[in-house]
């Protein structure tokens, strides 16, 4: 049995997975915030543009990762939609763009009912983008560490945590009552998400203990890598959790929460990069590349 670390996907795919999830979550949470906290049309338009810009930036890296980036138009040929997560992802991403734009138009013209419907659809697609980034890796049967239901859940929770982080940055400079209210709601939600992420990670590695050789190898690669243990676990998860929890109990502590958000974003990226890096094939024969 040969164990080989995958090398087809690297930095570019990790960057795409991070910004894809971040963009989708920013859009979904931002629109939800606008609809729930009456933040006004410009906030709704602003966060939707921000979400789409982040998603587009991520997509650029997906295109650059193709063998020939000029063939990217073929991505719209989604004949494999019945079984391929890239094809399904394309549909969800297009949905996020289309309903995002329609939501912004409705918000601009203050068409309340239409805005609500388009907002819900854009949120659904934004949510779909965050989830699909995990399902994309999950579909690889050859890499058992990715082929576990825990991965899409982990990526979705992590993406929403990074989305919260971006929204805290956006809201930090605003002093009106609604913004402050929304900021604290997002802050509390992020504390919940980081706690959940820690729990899922624990479960993920606990599953790995009982997994096959490739899963164990992937888990060992991660746990033996200080970028994972110190960079991601400590600086990207535990520290922001403590800082945000502390900030939530103090007055005038937005600066601390904003700093913690930066760490959350760093952690979100490291998680994706390291999970991609730790993908190990278990070839059922004596073959190594």
């Amino acid at each position: 049995m040969d164990l080989v670390q995958q090398h087809t996907w690297g930095w570019f795919i990790a960057i795409y997975l991070f910004f894809g999830g971040l963009g989708g979550a920013t859009m979904a949470l931002g629109i939800l915030g606008e609809l729930r906290f009456n933040k006004g049309k410009w906030f709704g338009i602003g966060v939707t543009v921000l979400g789409m810009a982040i998603l587009s930036f991520g997509l650029l890296f997906l295109v650059l990762d193709l063998i020939d980036p000029f063939r990217f138009l073929l991505a719209f040929w989604i004949k494999g939609i019945g079984h391929s997560w890239i094809a399904r992802g394309m549909v969800v991403i297009m949905g996020a763009y289309i309903f995002g734009v329609l939501y912004m138009v409705a918000a601009f013209f203050e068409s309340t009912t239409f805005k609500k419907w388009m907002g819900y659809l854009a949120m659904f697609c934004g949510f779909g983008v965050t989830t699909y980034t995990g399902l994309l890796l999950n579909a690889n049967v050859g890499i058992p560490f990715w082929h576990t239901p825990a991965l899409p859940v982990l990526f979705t929770v992590s993406a929403f945590s990074t989305g919260c982080a971006i929204l805290m940055w956006v809201l930090a400079g605003k002093n009106d009552h609604e913004s402050e209210h929304f900021f604290h709601a997002i802050e509390s939600f992020d504390i919940f998400l980081i706690s959940l992420e820690l729990l899922i990670l624990f479960a993920y590695f606990d599953f790995a203990r009982g997994g096959n050789l490739a899963v164990v190898k992937s888990a060992h690669l991660l746990l033996g890598n200080p970028i994972f243990t110190i960079g991601f676990l400590i600086f990207g998860l535990i520290m922001p959790l403590i800082l945000e929890a502390y900030a939530s109990m103090k007055e005038n502590s937005r600066g601390l929460a904003v700093f913690a958000s930066g760490l959350v974003l760093l952690g979100g990226f490291l998680l994706r990069y390291l999970i991609v890096w730790a993908g190990v094939f278990q070839y059922p024969h004596g073959l190594a590349g």
Partner: peptide
């Protein structure tokens, strides 16, 4: 498309 997804998926 040249995305490499199939390369990753082949065990």
């Amino acid at each position: 498309l040249g995305c490499g997804y199939c390369i990753e998926a082949c065990p």
